[in-house]
Design a protein around this nucleic acid. Structure first.
Lengths: 134, 134
DNA sequence: TTGCTCCTCACGTCACGTGAGGTGGC
DNA sequence: TTGCTCCTCACGTCACGTGAGGTGGC
């Protein structure tokens, strides 16, 4: 039985734990976001990879581009100038929040509009239905 | 002076009126969403093209794929079986609304989370600032 | 002839999905 | 030998952006 707290996880174990596809993990590796070690031809993911992937998926939910996440993760990896790193991440997060709130406003507007269209459509259908019944 | 109510509009006039790029109009044409006529090598957009483009851009705001919009527009173009057309469009719009509300729920959740992260970050930065000041 | 606007390829973007074809180890 | 899982290309997707290079008409 595979121990998911083991030092190394296979690609299948990673997919199961994080809900992603093998293609996604290979893609992130090609983009230099994670760095699994090799055992023969197979990939083995370390604790570090798990930590990074978790942050990557969090960042995705906030709309960060993968390249942006890579840069932020690399900042933390170097471990120097802690405050400066945090400041940059904080600024990036603020920018993301603003963008997300703009998106929400747009989405809200579109939803209201579409609902109005649907009401109009329901009305039309009712009218056409009555006309056909006569 | 270009009359924007003229029978035909140039590509520039279309872009100005609808806030899109020439590339977008050519792309929609390649996808068979609009059908400008030719005058020599130039495109001239008819009233029909304007009507279709307006609907396309509306549909985009609701998250319809271009191919889906093409099918709906073609339904209306054929002009037969009005009720059936309306019914289909209505069903498609309902599906879109459900998807948009799902997206909004996700976005709301992500916004709440990101705000919490930002609060944590602000706290951290304040603490680090005090530590540096001592 | 110089500018201007139009045009047609055709590759680039972003985050993967999806085969095709091949290898290692139980 | 058969299965299984892993692998590496490499093209496809979606809605365009972005040059490159060329043409027509004032």
């Amino acid at each position: 039985m595979p121990n998911s707290d083991a030092e190394f996880l296979t690609i299948r174990q990673m997919c199961a734990r994080f809900g992603v596809t093998p293609r996604t993990l290979r893609f992130y590796e090609a983009k230099e976001l994670i760095f699994p070690v090799r055992k023969g031809q197979s990939r083995l993911y370390t604790r570090r990879d798990r930590g990074r992937l978790k942050l990557i998926l969090r960042g995705k939910r906030f709309g960060f581009a993968l390249e942006e996440m890579r840069q932020l993760l690399d900042l933390y990896d170097r471990g120097d100038a802690q405050v400066e790193q945090l400041r940059r991440t904080y600024a990036a997060a603020q920018a993301r929040l603003a963008e997300m709130e703009r998106q929400r406003a747009e989405l809200d507007e579109a939803i209201v509009e579409l609902k109005a269209d649907l009401a109009w459509g329901a009305d039309r259908l009712a009218t056409l239905g009555r006309a056909a019944a006569e």
